[in-house]
Amino acid sequence: MLVSLVLSLLSIALQPAQAEPQTLRIGTGDWAPYVDQSRSDGGALPRLVSAVFAEAGYRVEFIFHPWARNVLMLQQGQLHAIMPYSCTPSRLNFGICSDALVRGEIVLFHRRDQAFEWSAVEDLLKYRIGTTLGYSYGPAFDEALQAGRLNVTQNGKEDTSFRLLELGRVDLHPQDRAVGYAMLRRLFPEDGGNIVHHPRQLNTEPLRLLFRKDDPEGIRLVRLFNARLRSFAERGDLQRLQQALNSGDADDWVPSTSALAARD
């Protein structure tokens, strides 16, 4: 009996320890309804990204920083990836983009009592515009901004431009439509309706993960992520997520997979 017990204990001791999943550090920012720092799961896109990487055997830790700092940390090798970003030409100088997660729609917000029409970026030159550092608003707007043709006040925090818009200190604020209305509901629960958006789109852009292109590990991870993401697309998860974001129901969206449960 004693010998049997000893042999059993030895057998258990000699079994190889199960390796802990590697943790990936992904930089992001508070950008509800896509990313919500107040939620334990990080919001809709972190739920998706965590599930995709979980199916590949990885854990994900989301690091919240301003958008420009995320880019710098990725370039310095302090992060495995950053999200959600559009795949602009300047970012392709140092990064490699994943396949699209969802599609964002950039519009121009303005006060309801301000008559505003536009059809080209040239029509915006006479307005005071509030923007966020590290954010891309589409090729035409970004080019005009870099050329110094626009009257822009850049801010480090996402909500500053909406506060300035409410106070009448800027005239326009370009922002993702879903993000803008989520932010307005939080900032001005009683009179958020004073700010509306113009129906013309400034830009539509797929939102993606961005990895370092000079890092072999980053190249391997983006290929792995894309392969797993295709499975989610085939199951209809990405379509359901886009619909949930468009209808304001992103908080209730969960991927149709047990990967997150399995990860925990």
Rank of each mutant, 00 (worst) to 15 (best):
L5M: 02
L7M: 03
S8E: 02
S8I: 03
S11W: 04
I12D: 01
I12Y: 01
I12H: 00
A19H: 00
E20G: 03
P21G: 02
P21M: 03
Q22V: 05
I26A: 02
T28C: 05
G29Y: 11
G29S: 13
D30Q: 08
W31I: 04
P33Q: 08
Y34S: 11
D36K: 13
D36W: 05
Q37E: 11
S38G: 07
S40E: 14
S40H: 11
G42E: 13
L45T: 08
P46A: 10
R47T: 12
L48V: 08
V49H: 07
A51N: 07
A51V: 07
A54M: 12
E55L: 05
P66M: 06
W67H: 12
N70V: 02
M73A: 13
Q75L: 04
Q75S: 11
L79V: 12
P84I: 13
S86R: 13
S90D: 15
L92K: 15
L92V: 04
L92D: 09
N93H: 13
N93E: 15
F94M: 13
C97F: 12
S98Y: 10
D99E: 14
L101Y: 09
L101A: 10
V102Q: 10
R103M: 12
G104E: 15
V107N: 15
H110V: 10
R111F: 04
Q114S: 13
Q114H: 13
F116R: 09
F116V: 02
A120I: 03
V121K: 04
L125R: 14
L125Y: 14
Y127L: 06
Y127K: 10
G130M: 07
T131C: 08
T131A: 13
L133I: 14
G134Y: 10
G134R: 09
G134L: 11
G134V: 11
Y135P: 05
E143G: 09
A144P: 12
A147M: 11
T153F: 10
K157Y: 11
E158I: 08
E158K: 10
F162Y: 10
F162W: 05
F162V: 11
L164H: 07
L165E: 09
E166R: 15
E166F: 08
V170M: 02
V170A: 01
D171W: 03
L172A: 02
P174A: 00
P174L: 01
Q175T: 05
D176M: 01
V179L: 04
A182Y: 02
M183L: 02
L184D: 04
R186V: 00
L187K: 03
L187I: 03
P189Q: 00
D191R: 12
G192L: 01
G193A: 05
I195Y: 03
I195K: 03
V196F: 01
R200M: 06
L202T: 05
T204P: 01
E205W: 05
L207D: 04
R208P: 01
F211I: 00
R212P: 03
K213T: 01
D215S: 08
E217W: 00
G218Q: 00
G218T: 01
L221H: 02
R223N: 11
F225N: 00
N226Q: 03
L229H: 04
R230F: 01
F232I: 07
F232V: 06
R235G: 08
G236P: 14
Q242A: 12
Q243V: 04
N246K: 12
G248A: 09
D249H: 15
D249N: 15
W253K: 10
V254R: 15
P255W: 06
S256I: 05
